[in-house]
Amino acid sequence: MITGYSNNSRGIGVRSYQLILPSVVCSTHLAKKVAEQVGGVTFSHQHGCGIIGPDVAGVNDFFVALAGHPNIQSTVVLGLGCETIQGNELTDSITSNYPETEYVVIQESAGMAGALDSSIATARALLDSYTPQRTALEQLTIGVEGFPNPSLLNEFTLLAENSGHKVLASNAQRESARNFAELIRRKCHVILSFPDANQPPTGLPLIPVITVANERSPLHQALASEFDELHSVSAQELLLKVINVANGEKSKSESKKVGDIVVPRMVRSV
């Protein structure tokens, strides 16, 4: 039995964060200051301008997916004004599905101090208009990333599906942060991460990530205390952990705020 949050148009999530979304690298510093002030989540990134070809739609769509994730209750888009990804259009494409979204633009806010003030006021007004409602979450979408033992993964998937949950796997890359992008898009509530032997345990700002250590990795052995579980964990124990975290228990990477969102790109900047 999982109790989540009814995050309005974004559905039922296992967290209820406000996302402060910088539409371009130039507004990431402002986004951080705003998120600190209002208790929102944000991330630093390098994108939104000087991008061409498939990256324009790709970055835009990824930002829409982030803003519409079920663990997000509302989004404040922060733009500079002259960037490739125009914040007002990005905001419109988010708002059409997720109305609890606002937009602030630096170049029309009398500078950084003005932009900071109006962003904070906008973010707080959005927060005030919403009281998180605790709601039963029937079907959990569980993302699995990295390199789990195949028999453990099979057993876990079967068990989770028998309990009415959905399991989605992504292991295209050796770096966890790159696999996360796919699982964000697919609206996973919680992610189980089995990092590569040479990669540290890492998480995400908006989705709780449960990390599982590979006992044969010297790096993971050295960092044993930073992982939630070991590869030798049973499928039952793992599902119990997922459910506990879905119900509000903080995973280790979550409590230490380890890890950033990596925006997928295909083509060099111009």
């Binding site: 061409i52 070809g53 960037e83 490739t84 125009q86 111009v270």
Partner: peptide, 12 residues
């Protein structure tokens, strides 16, 4: 990359 830069620049 199959992209004509002159279509993307100058920026908006």
């Amino acid at each position: 990359e199959g992209i004509d830069i002159r279509g993307a620049q100058p920026s908006r």
